[in-house]
């Protein structure tokens, strides 16, 4: 996964001299995604900053508004809270608010999610906040292949994008071809085809959903797993087409249940795919508590493959209407 991120950044920086990387410890690369880039691109294009999330996020806004393509590394998703004004009020609105006088091609790159016993301040899934901002795009890959193609597309996108790597997927392995490719933002990927139930997820939850699907197969239940990849704009079409086929829907998201990702997906399926549903859509989210430190407790907070599989079995047991 880390090599895919490094390759995406390096390729885009080689291709376009207006692309630069700015943030705390980007030379050294704490999560290694930015490691090695300083050696190739130097001080001007790989800029270490003070720990000042708000000013660094705003530096991205001002640079983007004047012709550059910043990639702003904000390390942990929770640190985006410190940069909120610049992302929500400035990056998320300037183009519209100023009547289209500028565009804002910025990527805010960060680590999201739980599972590493990092405690609440380094373990949250903050993506719903940004899904709620009308002009921010939100990306969350689950595989190295997707991460590379999506990050390259995000850097080339003329709009602000928040790009969430998963804290616990840094070591994820997977095939990444040598030749260049892009993955368009807004397109989901069916990671596993199935006929009985649609499971919709992103990031780490794709892996939990695939595990659940494998377990369900042993029970004779065929689950389709959709990896949204982009959380805004999200691929309603692919999800609704799947629900039309399976008639059952489970939304799995690592954020909290109130106004979380799963709530959004389930709401749209209920609204637009109601006639296809054989049972009420289900949401599976993290338990609504701050993320606890102890591995035993943390594990209980995050949606698990067992929980997802259990929900699928329950849906299968609902008598057809």
């Amino acid at each position: 996964m880390i090599a895919a991120i490094q390759a995406a950044l390096a390729e885009e920086m080689r291709r376009d001299p207006t692309v630069f990387l700015i943030g705390e410890d980007v030379r050294l690369g704490v999560f290694a995604g930015t490691r090695g880039l300083h050696a190739e691109f130097g001080d001007k294009r790989v800029i270490d900053t003070p720990i000042s999330e708000l000013a660094v996020a705003g530096t991205g806004v001002g640079a983007a508004a004047t012709g550059l393509r910043p990639v702003v590394d904000l390390m942990f998703g929770t640190f985006l809270y410190l940069a909120f004004d610049q992302i929500a009020n400035q990056a998320g609105a300037m183009r519209y608010m100023f009547g289209g006088q500028t565009k804002l091609p910025i990527v805010y790159m960060t680590q999201n999610g739980s599972g590493s016993s990092a405690g609440h301040h380094h373990s949250q899934s903050v993506h719903p906040f940004f899904m709620n901002m009308p002009l921010i795009k939100v990306v969350m890959p689950s595989t190295p292949y997707d991460a590379k193609g999506l990050l390259k597309a995000a850097i080339r996108d003329d709009n602000p994008v928040v790009f969430f790597n998963h804290l616990s997927l840094g070591g994820q392995r997977g095939e990444v071809p040598d030749e260049e490719y892009l993955i368009p933002l807004g397109k989901a990927d069916i990671k596993r085809e199935g006929a009985d139930v649609t499971i919709c997820a992103a990031g780490m939850m794709v892996h939990q959903s695939l595990k659940a699907a494998a377990a369900l197969e042993a029970d004779g239940i065929s689950a389709e797993v959709i990896d949204l990849r982009t959380l805004k704009p999200w691929d309603e079409e692919t999800v609704l087409a799947s629900v039309a086929k399976t008639g059952r829907f489970i939304a799995v998201d690592e954020s909290y249940p109130v106004c979380g990702g799963a709530s959004e997906w389930a709401a749209v399926v209920a609204e637009k795919g109601f006639s296809d549903l054989k049972a009420a859509p289900r949401r599976i989210s993290s338990k609504p508590v701050p993320i606890p430190f102890s591995p035993a407790l943390e594990k209980a907070v995050i949606p698990s493959a067992e929980e997802i599989a259990a929900a699928a079995r329950e849906l299968m047991a609902v008598a057809a209407r």
Binding site: V56, G62, D85, Q86
Partner: peptide
């Protein structure tokens, strides 16, 4: 003129970015 700003202090980091842009270019 890169914009007025309704948030007190909200424009200050944006100006830093514009200054960075001049330096970078």
């Amino acid at each position: 003129m890169l914009g007025a700003c309704g948030i007190v202090g909200g424009g200050i980091p944006v100006a830093v970015g514009a200054g960075f842009s001049a330096y970078y270019r």
